[in-house]
Amino acid sequence: MKASELRKKQLHELNSELVALLKAHFGLRMQLATQQLSNTKQLKLIKKDIARVKTVITQKLSNHDK
């Protein structure tokens, strides 16, 4: 997921995307804990996507205040 794609979305879409990513991250963490996760790189990618979404949300909120 690219930041340019995220910037085109509305805040409510970004919030729903964030919730979905957090649920996916939780599921991956549970798979890791039960030793069912074969591709551990997925965790790193999901965490980066979560950070991207949070960054874009913060940018949109700060631009909205101006």
Rank of each mutant, 00 (worst) to 15 (best):
E17D: 10
I57L: 14
S62N: 11
A33K: 12
D65I: 13
L22D: 12
L32A: 14
S4R: 05
T40P: 04
H64K: 15
K2R: 07
Q36P: 00
R29V: 04
K9E: 09
H12E: 15
T58L: 12
L18R: 10
K66N: 14
T40E: 12
T55P: 02
K23G: 13
K44C: 02
L61R: 14
K66R: 12
M1F: 00
H64F: 14
L22P: 05
A51Q: 02
K9W: 10
L61A: 07
K47S: 05
S16M: 12
K60P: 07
L28C: 04
A20C: 12
K23R: 15
L43N: 04
T34P: 03
T55K: 13
K54I: 07
L6I: 04
N39Y: 03
H64A: 13
T34Y: 01
H12W: 10
L21A: 12
A3Q: 08
L37A: 01
I46C: 03
L22F: 09
V19H: 13
N63A: 11
L14K: 08
N15F: 15
A33E: 14
Q59Y: 10
Q59G: 10
H12D: 15
L21W: 06
H64V: 08
A20H: 13
M1D: 01
E13F: 02
E5H: 08
Q36W: 04
K44H: 08
K66P: 06
A20V: 11
K48I: 03
Q36R: 12
Q31N: 08
L32S: 11
L28P: 01
T34K: 02
